[in-house]
Design a protein around this nucleic acid. Structure first.
Length: 482
RNA sequence: GGCGCCAUCGUCUAGCCUGGUUAGGACAGCGGCUUUUCAAGCCGUUAACACCGGUUCAAAUCCGGUUGGCGCUACCA
């Protein structure tokens, strides 16, 4: 069998992390077995679909490096790949269902339906729709349709049947049709609804494996029923565990689902995103955690996919990101950081930028951190004077440390070499200091205004003697004024 | 409410299928080292089998139940 997997997002919102993870797993499975990965846009709901959201999906996939083999942009043998362009195809099967008596027109109003639902709830029963119109002959239905303005096409669900399927991740899952009800499949002959459209598309696009989120499990029996009525072939199913928020509920747009492109804008590397997402619900079993996309393609299997939902852990993502940032060469990293520098730094020459990127590399969690963490190279930052004191050392000691640094700086001729600078400092250091931290911490803060920054010697080297002296003096004044 | 899915450290998870482990790793936390500051790195450490029963010499592992969590419950996808 030729493996064909697909993702079918609806462009009604940004391309978020859950969809991206589903895409990744589809891609990995397809690549693992030499199959095709397809992107289909589910925009049957025209009003809610927006082109910019569709674009967000294309861009996100491209950025991750998991571009589909067939999609609305590049096309393919089974297009079109946008549901809004496939209406005639759905119509054929809708007519088939109708004429064979497997579907019917339902004329209940939304209000009537709501009343029925309330009744079921009150009786503590399943709230499915058992339609009185299910046995109305098609001819008669079409007649009523002319008079009534409100109607919907429903599937005539056979009663008392057990629908069973083998999920690649969960094993056997079964549903009783008596709990499914006569579900809607189209608003009209030219307006198909989700459950029906997917089934037709999957058949026509020869999809062999449907890999999607666990939230679709309860749609599966409906789709299976349609597949059977239409005489289609069943794909294999794999329902992925959900990605959860910190409160363990499904990550959704309204709470915490950040779009993939937002991660990119914040400066998360694609390598980190891929590695992190792969481990959200999957684990190869060994102790290794660092995998490239290519390595993932060779390792992926459904047996190693988790059944329970996975909480999205930003700290772990940051760790992956910091790791991949450290792997970059200075040239690569400088390029990646370029868009994040503040405006003043743009005018600097590339060699200078490379120097400060190299200095900050071990401290970077995401690329956008570069702006904030290198700002002090361009402009003296304001800071709280109490930050100047190392641990709990006394204020006069801090002042002494800075004065010591000042005299040393004044004595050294600019330009200087880093090693020499450090040697001079340590040779001349006032012996009354407990440890060198008492000198180095205040100096570093005076220069950078930050509690985490590169070494003072590295900063002085870049800032130069004059600017360094100015900042040390500034710190001194700051302290004495208090 | 109904239906479905699920249940190992705070989080991601290994182990479960094929019962016997000091229940392993990673992130975060904490402590230390780096006889020089912030990081980084390295080392160490805290911390879990939801509960109750059954089977068995032996249960995280097999079976049943309970509890809990989540998902779905549209003329959305």
């Amino acid at each position: 069998m030729i493996i064909r997997t697909r993702i079918a997002p609806s462009p009604t919102g940004l391309f978020h992390i859950g969809t991206a993870r589903t895409a990744l797993f589809n891609y990995l499975f397809a690549k693992r077995y030499g199959g095709k990965f397809i992107l289909r846009i589910e925009d049957t709901d025209h009003e809610r679909s927006k082109p910019e959201f569709e674009n967000d999906i294309f861009e996100g996939l491209k950025w991750l490096g998991i571009a589909p083999d067939e999609d609305p942009l590049g096309g393919g043998l089974f297009g079109p790949y946008r549901q809004s362009e496939r209406t005639e195809k759905y119509q054929i099967y809708l007519e088939k269902l109708l004429s064979e008596g497997n579907a019917f027109y339902c004329f209940h109003s939304e209000k009537e339906l709501a009343v029925e639902q309330d009744r079921w709830t009150a009786e503590r029963k399943q709230a499915f729709h058992e339609c009185e119109y299910r046995n109305t002959p098609l001819k008669e239905g079409e007649q009523i349709k002319k008079e009534k303005k409100s109607f919907v096409i429903r599937f005539k669900t056979p009663a008392g049947v057990t629908v069973m399927f083998r999920d690649l991740i969960r094993g056997e899952v079964s549903f009783e049709t008596s709990f499914v009800g006569d579900f809607s499949i189209a608003k009209d002959i030219t307006v198909p609804l989700y459950n029906f459209a997917v089934v037709v598309d999957d058949e026509l696009m020869k999809i062999s494996h449907v890999i999607r989120g666990e939230d679709h499990i309860s749609n599966t029996p409906k789709q299976l029923l349609l597949i059977e009525a239409l005489g289609f072939s069943r794909p294999q199913y794999a329902h992925l565990p959900l990605i959860l928020g910190a409160d363990r509920s499904k990550l959704s747009k309204r709470h915490g689902a950040i779009s993939l492109n937002e991660f990119r804008e914040q400066g998360y590397l694609r390598e980190a995103m891929i590695n992190f997402m792969a481990f959200l619900g999957w684990n190869p079993g060994g102790e290794r955690e660092l995998f490239s996309l290519a390595e993932l393609e060779n390792e992926f299997s459904f047996e190693k996919v988790q059944k329970a939902g996975a909480v999205f852990n930003q700290e772990k993502l940051d760790w992956f990101n910091a790791h991949y940032i450290k792997q970059k060469t200075i040239d690569e990293l400088t390029q990646l950081c370029a868009p994040y520098f503040n405006p003043e730094s743009r005018i600097q020459n590339p060699e200078f930028l490379k120097k400060i990127v190299a200095l900050e590399q071990p401290r970077l969690k995401k690329l956008s951190d570069i702006k904030e963490s290198t700002q002090f190279f361009f402009k003296e930052a304001g800071y709280d004077a109490t930050l100047l004191a190392w641990k709990d050392s006394a204020e006069e000691k801090t002042i002494r440390a800075l004065e010591c640094a000042k005299t040393l700086l004044e004595r050294i001729a600019d330009p200087f070499e880093k090693i020499k600078l450090q040697d001079v400092f340590f040779a001349e250091i006032d012996k009354s200091f407990q440890g060198k931290g008492e000198l180095l911490w205040p100096l570093r803060v005076a220069l950078s205004g930050k509690k985490t920054s590169p070494s003072p010697f590295e900063i002085i080297e870049i800032l130069g003697r004059e600017e360094s002296l100015r900042r040390v003096n500034g710190a001194l004044m700051n302290l004495k004024r208090r």
